[in-house]
């Protein structure tokens, strides 16, 4: 499979330890397969879905639509699962939170790694790691500076700790200079981090 070359690149420093992980994981998969609990081909399909079909582009399209369609934006903020559900599959209890000049939203899961997978794909390592999970609720401005983001001193910072099955999608502010852009052009500047609240949309042109 195409992973092999990639895997080799990452494994060379810790070859023996990671080979050990590969063996242990393969053994468990063999056991579950022999017991008739899982079809390995269906596991392949799950992996492939997250590698190729589900990622931050899903969320970016929603943000771009909200920027250009006031009725959709209102519906999104009222009930994000319902609004997005009219366009395609989405999980329940998704909550969209809007950034404004007065308020900036940031999402964390201090207890584990809760994240809106269907909108943003698999969470990046930093989102699941101790530095972010520990500091986001105590020093959000410090965390934002790790991302190179500085907000005005009087902007309210609202941190949402995802401690249940509700999920949060930040609706970032549409940057100036994007008037008249198509949804497709707008979606291209909506970064993953801007929908977590650790970044801002990136206008390069």
């Amino acid at each position: 499979m195409s992973d092999h070359a990639h895997e080799h690149d990452h494994d060379h420093d810790h070859g023996s330890e990671l080979s050990e992980m590969q063996l242990r994981v393969r053994a468990l998969e063999t056991i579950l397969t022999e017991k008739g609990y899982v079809d390995p081909a269906a596991l392949d399909a799950i992996v492939e879905t997250y590698e190729t079909k589900i990622g931050p582009r899903n969320g970016a399209k929603i943000v771009a639509k909200a920027w250009t369609d006031p009725a959709f934006k209102k519906a999104l903020l009222d009930d994000a699962s319902k609004a997005i559900g009219t366009l395609g599959r989405v999980g329940d209890h998704l909550i969209a939170v809007e950034n404004t000049p007065e308020r900036h939203n940031m999402v964390v899961c201090t207890l584990c790694s809760c994240y809106p997978w269907e909108m943003l794909g698999l969470p990046p390592i930093w989102y699941k790691a101790s530095p972010y999970r520990s500091r986001a609720v105590k020093d959000p401005r410090g965390v934002l500076s790790d991302f190179g983001v500085t907000l005005p001193k009087d902007t309210e910072i609202r941190v949402w700790d995802s401690t249940a099955e509700t999920r949060f999608l930040v609706l970032p502010m549409r940057p100036p200079g994007t008037e008249g852009w198509s949804e497709e052009q707008l979606a291209a500047i909506v970064t993953r981090d801007s929908m977590i609240g650790t970044g801002l949309p990136r206008v390069t042109s």
Partner: peptide
Amino acid sequence: HHKWEGRVMAM
């Protein structure tokens, strides 16, 4: 980062 990670997630 490794093939086994995807297998664990899928399992």
